[in-house]
């Protein structure tokens, strides 16, 4: 299998889907400059640079999606989504329902976020939960190039608006990506490591931190199961519950602020559905209630690191033994 970066995996998914379906088009601030191979293959009508104006980019995408096209828009960095909030939340998310189902909005919004670039809180803000909280929208955040490709292909084929978040820290990391036209269904988590003692649930770059934590735990005789959610809405509740019913312990980890983050929803889900299986309280590890600093050590300190995850999981395991 060839290795490619997540950035290139996104390009590969766009290429395959644009070949497959003439109604797919992409636009954004500089996408035709940065992905000129797409312009070469599909022409300037289907691959467009736009003015610097997120509101009208998103609004145009919503209008086009409701009228027969399948736009993919690149809004660059997640904080810039604030300028497109009305179009995504009030139009894309609601006008299907509010019109009695007359319209659908097959559109994908790409946005990068997460630690790794050191440019501060107006580029790095993990806002996934805002969109999970907004009806009518789906939310995806892959942890590796192969998943990025398969999930983006599914997102483009989906008849709903999908927010597709790309972790800046993973953007240039290579990974194996199959040549096949693999489409990964939205809403299906991946068990990246099996274990019987504790469940670590995460998405994006902290999946890798959980895997490193699982290694550390393994050397201390604790078998951790690691679940990569891949999509946050729909959420693969069945996989989470099945794992916790097996291990009896849960640590949810994400880079996004812990307060009202996706981890809170997962903790509530498990408390409601699998309370009897729990051998210890649920633990959530996430960013603090603070904007992210540009300064490198503070940017890194914001993110749950493998040592902290491993220590939290170990405490849960010993708590039961004590």
């Amino acid at each position: 299998m060839p290795a490619m970066t997540l950035y290139d995996a996104v390009g590969a998914a766009l290429t395959e889907e644009m070949r497959r379906d003439r109604s797919v088009l992409v636009f954004g601030e500089g996408i035709a400059t940065k992905r000129h191979d797409l312009v070469d293959e599909f022409g300037a009508l289907r691959v467009r640079n736009t003015p610097l104006a997120e509101g009208i980019i998103a609004g145009t995408a919503v209008g086009a999606a409701g009228s027969g096209l399948r736009p993919v828009i690149d809004l660059l960095f997640a904080p810039f989504l604030c300028y497109a909030m009305d179009e995504l939340v009030n139009s894309a998310g609601k006008l299907r329902y509010m019109s009695g189902g007359q319209f659908s909005f097959p559109l994908v919004t790409l946005a990068m976020t997460g630690a790794g670039w050191g440019v501060g809180a107006q580029h790095n803000h993990n806002v996934e939960a805002w969109f999970v909280h907004s009806p009518g929208l789906k939310v995806v955040m892959p942890s590796n190039p192969a998943d990025a490709k398969g999930l983006l292909k599914a997102a483009i084929r989906d008849d709903n608006p999908v927010l597709f978040f790309i972790d800046i820290g993973l953007l240039h990391q290579p990974g194996e990506v199959g040549n096949d036209e693999l489409v990964l269904p939205l809403g299906k988590a991946s068990i990246v490591r099996e274990g019987r003692d504790v469940t670590l649930v995460s998405y994006g770059k902290t999946v890798h931190h959980c895997q490193q934590a699982a290694e550390m735990l393994g050397s201390r005789g604790i078998a951790a199961e690691v679940i990569d959610l891949r999509s946050l809405k729909p959420l693969d509740e069945a996989s989470i519950l099945a794992s916790v019913r097996k291990t009896g312990r849960l640590v949810v980890v994400h880079e996004a602020n812990r307060l009202c983050g996706v981890g809170a929803e997962i903790a509530a889900l498990v408390a409601e559905e699998a309370f009897a299986a729990l051998k210890a309280p649920i633990v959530r590890l996430g960013g603090p209630d603070a904007p992210v600093a540009a300064s490198y050590p503070l940017e890194q300190a914001f993110v749950p690191q493998p040592e902290a995850i491993s220590a939290a999981a170990e405490r849960l395991c010993h708590r039961q033994a004590a």
Partner: peptide
């Protein structure tokens, strides 16, 4: 060190509310 290069405010010089959101 919170800003880095993209959003430097210096209130004492009257350079206020710098943001990198275009």
């Amino acid at each position: 060190g919170r800003s880095g290069s993209l959003h430097i405010s210096v209130k004492e010089l009257g350079v206020v509310l710098t943001s990198t959101i275009v």
